[in-house]
Amino acid sequence: MQMNKKLKFMLLSLLILFFVLFIFNQNLAESFLRIIFSTTRNVIHPRLNILNMFFEHIILVSASTLTATLIGLLLGVFVTRDSGRNFLALVESIISIMQTFPPAAVLALSVPALGYGFPPAFVALFIYSIFPIVSNTIAGINSVDKGITESSLAIGMSKTEILFKVELPLALRVIIAGVRTTTTINVGTATIAAVVSGGGLGSLIISGLIDNNTAYIFSGALLTAFLALVFDSCFSILESKIPDLNR
């Protein structure tokens, strides 16, 4: 068992090392792709820089996810307060409609309104990702035992103190799960952002599809998959650090 774990760890480190080299060293990436695609003329895109696209992708995903988290959290908290409770049913019904919406549709719809480039990509990702976060914030806050919030109120905590000391800490796990879902979806939708000139690793895949170059597609897809798994494992580590207190 111990041996197995060590082996796993070594393999993982090697994999990460490989990707880091692939991203930062264009020559190494080229010679690697050359092994697989021996007959293709260009294996590295002459104009698109892998490092740039990689960071564009990360920036697009993190900017939209962070904004959505911030606003989604505020909205989720608002509809669970006394002053916003009237909106709870409305927000829940909008969430249930929006979650059946395909992410690609949201992206396509933002183009007529915002044109091409980073803004529509950012806005589409933001709009789509706000709903899982609001929904999980509501679920997280509602999952807090009513007896706990009520007795906290009764012993003289103010509503603000209850929100920050009781409700949010106890809802944290569920909220983080929402951010995780959102990030996963965003990494995927960001690849399609290339279609609206939003940049990111999708550009490599799309230009591969246009030029009929399998090497571009393969390297773009490989890096996107790697990025998605890295984000996801970060969240799974984060989640495992938060104890589940509501059980």
Binding site: G188, T191, I217, F218, A221, L222, T224, A225, A228
Partner: peptide, 20 residues
């Protein structure tokens, strides 16, 4: 679960090379 985290366009892309 791992499959689900891989973006759809990436999965399409990864399948193209071996299939062709």
């Amino acid at each position: 679960n791992t499959l689900q985290t891989i973006p759809s366009l990436a999965l399409f892309g990864l399948l193209i090379a071996p299939l062709s």
